[in-house]
Amino acid sequence: MPNPWMPQALKADVGDHAPCDPEFPARAIAHITADREATAEAPLDLIPFANLMGFFTGSGSGQAPHILWDPFTGTFAQFLPATSRAKALFDAAGGTRTNRAGKVAIQIESLFFPHCLVNGKAFAKLIDTPCEGWADLHAWISSWGVPDVWPMGRPTSLSRNTCPADKWRTHGGWYAHAHVPENDHVDPGSWPTFASQPTDPSSAERPFEPFPGASFFQAGRKSPVIEGMHRRLVAEHCDRYTSHAGLDVWGAGDVRSYTAWQQKLGFVGNAADGVPGRFSWDRLEVPKV
């Protein structure tokens, strides 16, 4: 059986699991968070990943998707297992139970709105972003039998195109929020293309240092791995060092800088303690030494 929890995602289970409707084919539904209204003339800063994660685990849990995806960093949070329905769709009483309509009905919210600003650059469409992590997300969803087809066409604009009831009942694959019956949204506006041969990211050979374990990171530890980490933190604009001497020795500057990296990924509170964990380490991609 595929993994109900995406291995690359921060697990943030909101509970209230409920089954899907297996008489429908497997599907995925693409959303954008659309949490600000910006224009080409007046772009606005992207909302931090941690804010949206906090919303879906707090007051917005009644609207939670399965996955929150940051296409700028490749960070994910997952709020419900793939085997449960999510809650990001309007579901009319007596209708098709849109949130449950599928052997799986995996809902993805991409952290994006048109004309968002990231590092001083504006992005008009989701496909204009780096789409970091898309291969991992696509591979996990494909593992649940969701075919690489858009029954209503791949979204290319913010426009409404409601799926007919018979097609919704019989065709699996990918749907835009703009396609879902009973809903009135027009998102996501665009979506990345499918890889021709998706691979399992957990088994792919990667040219990066494997996570050495949290106990590796002790004061005074000297290693070329720590130097590689130091350089990657600087490259990711998480430089909180007061000196760049002794690059290969673990110290207080590493803790501060790694905390900044964890916060960039969306960690908050005690989860951003400056001690590397497997998720944040894998995302840092420290080159092999």
Score class of each variant (00 low, 15 high):
residue 1 M to F: 11
residue 2 P to T: 06
residue 5 W to T: 00
residue 11 K to L: 13
residue 17 H to D: 13
residue 19 P to W: 07
residue 26 A to H: 04
residue 28 A to H: 03
residue 29 I to F: 02
residue 38 A to Q: 07
residue 42 A to V: 14
residue 45 D to Q: 15
residue 57 T to W: 08
residue 67 I to W: 00
residue 69 W to R: 06
residue 75 T to C: 08
residue 78 Q to G: 04
residue 80 L to V: 03
residue 83 T to K: 03
residue 89 L to Q: 00
residue 89 L to D: 00
residue 92 A to T: 05
residue 96 T to R: 12
residue 99 N to H: 01
residue 100 R to L: 07
residue 106 I to Q: 00
residue 110 S to T: 15
residue 124 A to F: 08
residue 125 K to A: 12
residue 131 C to K: 12
residue 131 C to Y: 07
residue 132 E to I: 11
residue 141 I to G: 00
residue 144 W to T: 04
residue 145 G to T: 06
residue 145 G to D: 06
residue 151 P to L: 15
residue 151 P to C: 15
residue 152 M to G: 04
residue 156 T to Q: 13
residue 161 N to G: 05
residue 162 T to G: 06
residue 164 P to H: 03
residue 170 T to N: 14
residue 171 H to N: 09
residue 177 H to G: 09
residue 180 V to F: 02
residue 180 V to D: 05
residue 182 E to N: 00
residue 183 N to Q: 00
residue 184 D to F: 07
residue 188 P to E: 02
residue 195 A to S: 15
residue 198 P to Q: 03
residue 198 P to M: 01
residue 202 S to D: 14
residue 203 S to F: 13
residue 207 P to G: 03
residue 207 P to W: 02
residue 208 F to A: 03
residue 208 F to P: 02
residue 211 F to G: 05
residue 219 A to F: 12
residue 220 G to Y: 11
residue 222 K to A: 15
residue 225 V to A: 08
residue 227 E to Q: 15
residue 234 V to M: 11
residue 240 R to G: 00
residue 245 A to L: 15
residue 255 V to Q: 11
residue 257 S to P: 06
residue 258 Y to V: 01
residue 258 Y to C: 06
residue 261 W to I: 12
residue 262 Q to W: 11
residue 275 V to I: 14
residue 279 F to N: 15
residue 280 S to L: 07
residue 281 W to E: 01
residue 281 W to I: 05
residue 284 L to W: 04
residue 286 V to G: 00
residue 288 K to R: 15
residue 289 V to T: 09
